[in-house]
Design a protein around this nucleic acid. Sequence first.
DNA 1: TTGAAAGCGCTAACAA
DNA 2: TTGTTAGCGCTTTCAA
Lengths: 336, 336
Amino acid sequence: MPSHGRRPSIGRVAELAGVSPTTVSHTLNGRRPVSAATRKRVLEAIELLGYRPNALARGLRTSRSESIGLIIPDITNPFYPMLARGLQDVLGPAGYHEIISNTDGDRALERSAVEQMIVRQVDGIAFAVFHTHAEDLLPAIDVGVPVVRLGGRLVQEGVDLVHSDDEGGAAEATRYLLDQGYDRIGFVCGPRAEGPAAERVAGYLSALAERGVAADPELIAHTRFSRAGGDDGTERLLALPRPPRAVVCANDVMAIGALDAARRRGLDVPGELAIMGFDDIEAATLVSPRLTTMANPARKIGQACGRLLLDRLSGALTGPATETVVPARLVRRQSA
Amino acid sequence: MPSHGRRPSIGRVAELAGVSPTTVSHTLNGRRPVSAATRKRVLEAIELLGYRPNALARGLRTSRSESIGLIIPDITNPFYPMLARGLQDVLGPAGYHEIISNTDGDRALERSAVEQMIVRQVDGIAFAVFHTHAEDLLPAIDVGVPVVRLGGRLVQEGVDLVHSDDEGGAAEATRYLLDQGYDRIGFVCGPRAEGPAAERVAGYLSALAERGVAADPELIAHTRFSRAGGDDGTERLLALPRPPRAVVCANDVMAIGALDAARRRGLDVPGELAIMGFDDIEAATLVSPRLTTMANPARKIGQACGRLLLDRLSGALTGPATETVVPARLVRRQSA
DNA sequence: TTGAAAGCGCTAACAA
DNA sequence: TTGTTAGCGCTTTCAA
């Protein structure tokens, strides 16, 4: 084990092994042949000194940092850790590390996060914020850093897009209910159908249309994106003269609220009211009955993003921005 | 907006502003006075060129990367995002970024993560893995990188320790039940009381002792750390000739299992059986009745870790390793 | 199969 | 108040 003082440099290794720094460099990253004898001496010297390369120096020289920036609202929201993991699934083995920046959805923070990533010379950026204006990404594009936007629907020049199939997923959920003979199906939606929720209503509507079931506007309850909101919205639907016997909710948290409403009314789920959620959060398996839901493929989205970034970095993918849609998956449990 | 080609360097800014690179450097990080007129010219040049400093070059020169490494088992486990956020709460404003490495608890991965962090020249490491051997951190200590271990109880030379007060928290939970008149209180524990669970049983026992209540070994159910485990353990307790009327569980997931057991037996919670959890996971508010539990202060732990790191880095703190215990907080809800 | 030399972009003595 | 110079540790021509 090495002593103290400054960490040993490639030069000291070279010295000890009696070769040039060039040779040490090459035995380390094999860009040119090194004789077995030399390699052995170098490796021994490395071992002896406890030498480790300096990624900063290497990055400065090669102008690649082998790190990618992940800009998200809040790592505390369970969707994002999954995303991060997916990214790491593909980027990790390729030698990249992730630098994560939380913005709390604050526009100023988002912009400064992009700046920071450029300063830190990241090789790519994964940007997972819904409500940003396209121009916030311009600095990165300008500098030539590949950017992938996660979620949202904003198509932007120079920015690849990856998102889940919210519309298709909601359609599938609705079809699943339709297939079981329900014909009056409610939808518990957010205040104004913003973001993914808009797509999800669209999917609900299209599934209905596709099966020739008339959509009844009364059956769409606008409410808050929360457990209490899901409760209220469901309550309102249930109070209708001709209440639905099945509801699909814009997300799992609202579906858990729907469960509350059913319980309060003494309704058996799914016997008297079938409930479907969306996202498949951890709590979906923790409530009773367990939630039947559409899994929001966060990890898969992260993986797709990683692959995209890798392809851009290697030059395997060039040309205009692409759009990747990752399907949501039906998870049958007990509530529907 | 700048054109293309290589990103502008400090030299190009200097050129354009008609000053030396040194002056540009100093107007940027204010280590020495710069005349107002000069500063203005420099700033204009920066603006004009769209100049951004290169963190790699700076880091190489100063041998500080302004980043810290966070090594955890799995960012997908909700405890760790909270930790990460807490770290960022204090490190972010100080200009540090986090590099996160997931190890899945794999020893080889943990070791290589430490190596990677050193290679990337992180200024500090937060290491949140229970079952590692002390020697895995030696490379970092050897190189002089401050390391803080999160969780666990392993006191190690050169490694500051921050963990939650599992023992005190469990004692408080038990006391809370005792105060409500329960005298036969069960404890639903893990297989062999390993990790934090060991401390939690100890807290349970000490609260009992403190109040002069005899501990009945029958009332400690050893089972798996899972929802099903919590269900089984509680079931076993309930099947006793003199069953407890209150149980504290080693964690919330198990407490949710205890809820299952109560529901199956038609027991009112908390009327006929009071249930306490530990951790305050998100799902604790999602089940019915909502879980009364001890909040595991992940974010506070992260913050404490950040402060420690900052103090070590600034030299405000020197000397032997410290131990910081962060108290758990009682969260009264419905289940007890 | 190997080396010498230059330079990535920055900061910090030292000097003026 | 400002500039000159050297060098952080590495990779990469170019040359042998």
